[in-house]
Design a protein around this nucleic acid. Structure first.
Lengths: 341, 341
DNA sequence: CTGAAAGCGCTTACAG
DNA sequence: CTGAAAGCGCTTACAG
């Protein structure tokens, strides 16, 4: 019994296949990667080798192949989470779109942990990624510096990052439109005119600052004076948002801008346990989309980032080698949720 | 200006580093991978090389390294989607747990597309994965066969698959408990006693069949005769579930077992557009958990799969080389949702 | 046309 | 102890 039948420590190589088919490794290689037609290899031999490869469970050792080739076609992506509709959708479509373009996607998830982010970035460079996409990273510029030192293109997705080209949602415009929608529904449903509250996100975060700017401007434009103490941007987690809301003592109607579906969980817990719709009605709008958002009582609308549009820009950027000057702004769409019947 | 300053086509190697530090590639290699202590290399040299590596943006070419080493430590995983709370959570925690164990996770997403599944499996074998995990695959046995031919261990996660060891949720027990919970709440809230409806999933699917068995047995045990026409398992998509429900003409109270949060979207759309709570009240329970599930009117409980527990079994299996006879059953938990106040 | 041989960037057994 | 050299499994320029 041969070694490889006995234990799996050794996989089949082109040399094994060449021996079995009584031909050269060169011929096997060219048959297996499709370049054999310009080599005048007989169709019979090509079929025989292909059959043998299948029978022996052969698969190209990609390490050896990549080591030899000039380009890897690997494009790496760092996302903070998969378990989140926005980033999950992003990662999923990124993989599909990369494959469509003959690129090789390698995605890894870093849980918003700065150390893990750097480790993952180094890992992807080790994998010979030709481009590295960072989205939702805590410190994009550090990743960019690492890539620059290695001579690798890096691109920021939905992150402003000063050092690398970036593609970001038009947070300001969408936040402004969402704020208007909340104000409209507060007026229509509750006969109440603000000022609104804002919950979720971080003041150190570019996206949060842009959304706050839209939140304030929309109110100011309607003659409402935004109240600074109404802004509760103490983190993205559901618990932090819930805790921040619990400290409020708002009686009567309330209008709320929820900055992320992560915070929305905390908001819903707070509403369910602390608010009574009859006495203290609330209307809110959410930045970011969730399929169940439309069925949550009180939710009047969701700003949805254009993941497909952002990725289209991303791959256009990759194709031209990451050359760009100003950040690319991608508009969001706004989904309005009808009042309950 | 040197080549690598001018363009990035060539990355720094240990040979470049050796030249710069005036030492041998062997020494650089041992310094960089930590085996230098048994080589009596001076601390001064070690620090100098480390500094140079950083300065030059060096990163180990993992392809070359893996090609030379005996083991890859790569463990591949195929998931159908990232944009789903269950699979997203699974993928995220799989990566974290693999890293904790010094393994190298490579996850890829195949959109429930059988061809993509096979392609991805081959890709992971090419990457020299030592173990391949399939979850939510449409054809696990084909993947197992591929792995077996290549001498690679494969494991099915939440899939029964006859050819490889599998770890599956105890769908029967959880479905039975969930059904009881729905019956209880129909009785308490609506004074109504069934029989219940079932929506979502596929009859060709092992998990769906097990859940249906629990669904039927729970009713039978209470003296309710399950109605076969009440079972609407025509696929997982939200649209299919919504369409199936639209064909129903149920008046009065209704109790519903929702098989997956994916179907739940369709259920919610149908309830919102076609049911009036006052005239046609509905109570439902959901198999699989979503953070917003608790806030959906009418949802009385969710069966939540124990992702952490399944993964713990998975890594135990990996460590003992995938040796196991019977499928490992992992219990689910049941989250009850209080009635709205 | 076709296959032997060089070489990708590492690691490690081994000669000195 | 220490570094030159072999070799991992491929691809491809090149000699015959």
């Amino acid at each position: 019994m041969s070694d490889r039948e006995q234990n799996s420590s050794k996989r089949t190589t082109i040399y094994d296949l060449a021996k079995l088919a009584n031909t050269s490794p060169t011929a096997v290689s060219s048959i297996l990667n499709g370049t054999w037609k310009k080599r005048r290899i007989s169709k019979r031999l090509a079929e025989e080798v292909t059959r043998l490869a299948e029978e022996q469970g052969y698969s190209t050792n990609i390490q050896a192949s990549l080591l030899r080739r000039a380009r890897s076609n690997i494009v790496g992506m760092i996302v903070p989470k998969y378990d989140n509709r926005y980033f999950g959708d992003m990662a999923e479509r990124f993989e599909a779109m990369a494959r469509e373009r003959g690129l090789f996607p390698v995605v890894t998830c870093t849980q918003r942990n700065p150390d893990l982010e750097m480790e993952a970035a180094k890992e992807l460079l080790s994998f010979q990624a030709e481009t590295l996409i960072a989205t939702g990273a805590t410190d994009p510029d550090r990743i960019t510096a690492l890539c620059k030192a290695a001579g690798v293109t890096s691109i920021n997705l939905d992150l402003p990052g000063s050092a690398a080209p970036s593609i970001i949602s038009d947070n300001y415009a969408a936040a402004r439109a969402l704020t208007e929608m909340i104000l409209d529904r507060c007026a229509a449903d509750l006969g109440w005119t603000g000022p609104l509250h804002f919950v979720g996100g971080r003041m150190s975060d570019h996206n949060t600052l842009e959304r706050l700017r839209g939140f304030r401007d929309a109110q100011t434009a309607r003659g409402i004076t935004p109240v600074e103490q109404n802004v509760l941007a103490r983190g993205y987690s559901a618990d932090q948002s819930e805790a921040a809301l619990e400290q409020l003592r708002v009686t009567g109607p309330m209008g709320l801008f929820v900055n992320s579906t992560i915070s929305l969980e905390g908001v819903m817990r707070w509403i369910t346990t602390h608010r009574d719709e009859a006495e203290h009605p609330i209307r809110f709008g959410t930045f970011d989309w969730d399929p169940f958002g439309a069925f949550l009582p009180g939710n009047v609308g969701m700003a949805r980032q254009d993941v497909g549009g952002m990725l289209a820009h991303l791959f256009a950027l990759i194709e031209n080698g990451g050359e760009v000057t100003a950040p690319i702004l991608v508009p969001c769409s706004l989904e309005s949720i009808a009042a309950a019947r």
